[in-house]
Write a protein that binds this DNA or RNA. Structure first.
Length: 435
RNA sequence: UCCUCGGUAGCUCAACGGUAGAGCAUUCGGCUGUUAACCGAAGGGUUGUAGGUUCGAAUCCUACCCGGGGAGCCA
């Protein structure tokens, strides 16, 4: 058998009444006397393949009738529109190609399972059509993110995963023991290296994993997440917010326009993504504190948003919105204090609506040497430990800005997912590194 | 790290101090339009681990292991 058709093409209605070959894995099968219903998935979708005893020879019929779940097979037949079939189209099978019989004990039954069991069998659970659908959208997400930056003449850069300094607070570092020098950690962000590379090639971005050893076990946290970060020379807070607006809208529109069926199946109406338009609303940190206090939740000026503070805030908006000007004390040293008001920084977080919360964090960086050294000291670090980083301000410093976006968090919001673990094939947290 | 809930057949659960049970899955048989198909039969157990209380423990107590949800913090 040669020349196979993607199931996605069939259920999009592009092969109606044609004789085609399909190959994939048997998701489920049912029989009723002389008629067999095979649900075949091929990575692009699921197709009901109907086998009538009268249309195939007896040997093939018997073979198909005995197929175990997850057996892989090639079939050919005629595509027919049929409302009784899942997805509206079915294949009326008339021939059978290669078959690989699976063992009869596939663990993931056509039945409810507990999360512990499913996570222990994540390597098989990812075949689930719901998950498969999300991972295909995730791929489009990565493609769109890169396309946005490429089209806007950013250079893609890779930074090291082994680093010697903290840039997001020391308690969340993963220490790596292999190196002869002490104090080597997995990257939490490309931030410090980005600022170095920026002075080489200008506007840059990266798409890479970041590691946070936060003992957090919530539906919004991963120990290893994919980080989309960018850094721009000659850029201030307003400029970088604009980049964030346009990037997020670009990705949202790409997903909605190029994978509407998949986005809908994941749980989000594509039209809601198409409605997003830059710029997103902006409020100050001070205003955000007032909104939270008015909602009856406790919060003092100077506190960071916990989940309890963030949730009432995100319910006020229907699109993502920026919170700008966080207090100097709660942002890392590389954030630039506002010259007009040094108690706050030129920083901003983008919060997604519907309770999804923070998806981007960034802002304008400190470009003055003395100010940076003072900020490092104030954060309780030793400037000598950041020697190469402070060097950057000695030669050719320039106002610059950047941000980091959590890929899985944005996917969660855009696809209306309930848990961040579904946005990544093999999620990691402190209780889960296998499989 | 802390709080909280849980661990019984391959899976989902019941039994809550007195002989360990059901549905699904698996195997076999039946059914020509099924949608987690349905109907009939069969096989399937050291109740997470280690101690303790008791005539008797899946059940009560202690410790540990594993996991779900959440908090602080973050993308």
């Amino acid at each position: 058998m040669t020349g196979f058709v993607d199931i996605a093409k069939i259920i999009d209605g592009k092969k109606d009444n044609e004789q085609v070959n399909v190959r994939g894995w048997l998701w489920n099968s049912r029989s009723s006397g002389g008629i067999l219903f095979l649900m075949i998935r091929d990575g692009t979708g699921i197709l009901q393949c109907t086998v009538n005893k009268r249309n195939v020879d007896e040997a093939n019929y018997n073979k198909l009738e005995k197929l175990t779940q997850e057996s892989s097979l090639e079939v050919s037949g005629i595509v027919k529109k049929d409302q009784r079939a899942l997805n509206g189209y079915e294949l009326s099978v008339n021939n059978l190609g290669t078959v690989y019989i699976a063992q009869p004990d596939f663990p993931i039954a056509k039945k409810d399972h507990g999360l512990e069991f499913l996570m222990d069998n994540r390597h098989l659970w990812i075949r689930d059509p719901k998950l498969m659908n999300i991972f295909r959208i995730r791929s489009k997400f990565m493609e769109s993110a890169r396309k946005y930056f490429w089209e806007n003449e950013y250079t893609e850069i890779q930074s090291p995963s082994f680093q010697t300094g903290a840039c997001e607070g020391g308690s969340t570092l993963f220490e790596v023991k292999y190196f002869e020098r002490k104090g080597v950690y997995l990257s939490q962000s490309w931030q410090l290296y980005a600022e170095a590379m920026m002075s080489s090639v200008g506007k840059i971005f990266t798409l890479a994993p970041s590691f946070r050893a936060e003992p957090s076990r919530t539906r919004r946290h991963l120990s290893e997440f994919w980080h989309l970060e960018c850094e721009e020379p000659w850029s201030n807070l307003n400029n970088i917010n604009e980049t964030g607006d346009r990037l997020v809208c670009y990705i949202a529109h790409k997903l909605a326009n190029e994978m509407p069926r998949e986005v809908k199946n994941a749980g989000r109406d594509p039209n809601e993504l198409l409605k997003l338009k830059p710029p997103f609303p902006k409020i100050t940190y001070d205003e955000a504190v007032e909104i939270v206090q008015k909602s009856g939740t406790e919060m003092n000026w100077g506190d960071d948003f916990g989940w309890q503070q963030e949730e009432p805030l995100t319910k006020e908006f229907e699109t993502p919105f920026w919170v700008r000007g966080f207090p100097t004390g709660i942002k890392p040293f590389y954030h630039m204090p506002d010259p007009a008001r040094p108690e706050v920084t030129l920083s901003s977080d983008l919060l997604a609506p519907e309770g999804y919360g923070e998806i981007i964090g960034g802002g304008q960086r400190v470009h003055d040497y003395d100010q940076l050294v003072q900020r490092i000291i104030n954060d309780g670090f030793i400037p000598e430990d950041y020697g190469w980083y402070t060097d950057l301000r000695k030669w050719g410093t320039v106002p610059h800005s950047g941000f980091g976006l959590g890929v899985e968090r944005v996917l969660c919001w855009m696809l209306k997912l309930e848990h961040i673990r579904d946005a990544i094939p093999f999620p990691r947290d402190m209780r889960r590194v296998y499989p």
